[in-house]
């Protein structure tokens, strides 16, 4: 077991929403991320999965302080990052970088690819010469599969996959210890997705980076991640090593997610029994009492409506939050 690089402890993110009901505006708390904890070792890949709106991206952004956390701690090699002021935190950013979901939107349309990739270098190494920066940019571009000759092109002159490669190059140019990938392939064509996934996998192996990989594509997560964290309505419901999770998920929500992955064999696909969820994701503004999943859960009973199940270990590396697990 490697020592934890990153340790997230009961992290909360809330958004105050203003509503106009009646004369005076009132504020409603939206609990986007609710007391989520996990650890991440050096070189490890953690997948975060869940439906749209379950707080996956918000959790990642809160770790990187792109949205403010309302509570909890983020420990980086044992040091509490949430206690740092903005400027001190800014200087730490070289160690953790992010790849965004929309490849084109994440690139400044008025900057050339070379300038975009060079920006973190110019920020953290103002002492580097123009030539040194250029050499590093060219090397990084080659490393992510871009032709260094395209250094002067603008983002709109690239394809989506190439834009994502620029985004990855910008994220790894400082050689971070942690790379957060926020659905890096969901905006890409399926054929390009595989290339980007394999690129990320190779970069991680070569550079020994830890990775947080956010996705709603379980097949991709299974291919890439060592462990998987399942979120539902901002709460962690299950955390387990990938193979164990796919073999014997304990939470009904995880089971339903895994059952929803199509099997690439029509004969099997037609005959296998599927656990299909009823209803929609409840509103995070008015979450159900007790277990948040009980409104859609096939196993729900009276206990589920009364108390929120705690996230309890069922094995040394497998925790689940369900009254009916095991």
């Amino acid at each position: 077991m490697t020592a934890p690089l990153l340790s997230v402890d009961k992290l909360d993110v809330r958004f105050a929403l203003r509503t106009r009901r009646g004369l005076l505006p009132t504020w409603i708390d939206l609990r986007a991320v609710d007391s989520v904890s996990f650890t991440l070792g050096a070189g490890e890949t953690l997948g975060i999965v869940g439906e749209s709106g379950c707080g996956k991206s918000t959790l990642a952004r809160a770790i990187l302080r792109l949205v403010p956390a309302a509570g909890g701690r983020v420990l980086w090699l044992g040091e509490d990052l949430t206690k740092l002021d903005d400027d001190a935190f800014r200087r730490r950013r070289r160690d953790f970088q992010i790849v965004f979901q929309d490849p084109l939107a994440a690139l400044d349309p008025r900057m050339t690819a070379g300038t975009i990739i060079a920006e973190p270098l110019r920020t953290f190494h103002p002492e580097l010469s123009r030539a040194a920066i250029q050499a590093k940019v060219a090397a990084t571009m080659r490393d992510v599969g871009l032709a260094p000759e395209h250094i002067n092109r603008y983002p709109h002159e690239f394809s989506g996959g190439q834009c994502q490669r620029i985004g990855i190059a910008r994220a790894i140019v400082l050689e971070p210890k942690l790379l957060v990938c926020d659905e890096p392939v969901s905006a890409l064509d399926v054929s390009i997705q595989a290339q980007i996934i394999n690129l990320l996998k190779r970069l991680q192996r070569e550079r020994g980076m830890a990775m947080i990989f956010i996705s709603h594509n379980l097949a991709v997560v299974r291919h890439l991640c060592h462990r998987v964290l399942v979120l539902y309505l901002g709460k962690a419901v299950e955390l387990a090593p990938t193979e164990r999770l796919f073999a014997r998920a304990l939470h009904p929500y995880t089971q339903a997610l895994i059952a929803a992955v199509p099997v690439p064999d029509p004969a099997v696909e037609r005959n296998r029994s599927k656990l299909v969820l009823r209803g929609d994701l409840p509103s995070s503004l008015a979450p159900p009492s007790g277990c948040p999943f009980r409104t859609r859960c096939p196993k729900a009973d009276a206990v589920c409506a009364q108390s929120m199940p705690a996230l309890l270990p069922v094995a040394s590396d497998h925790t689940v939050a369900c009254h009916h697990a095991g």
Partner: peptide
Amino acid sequence: RKEYIEAARASGVPTPTIIRRHVIPN
């Protein structure tokens, strides 16, 4: 609100530089 501003913040670019380098040209 554009993602490239968030990307610049994630890259550790200080706010005055973000305004000068990303906001004003755009």
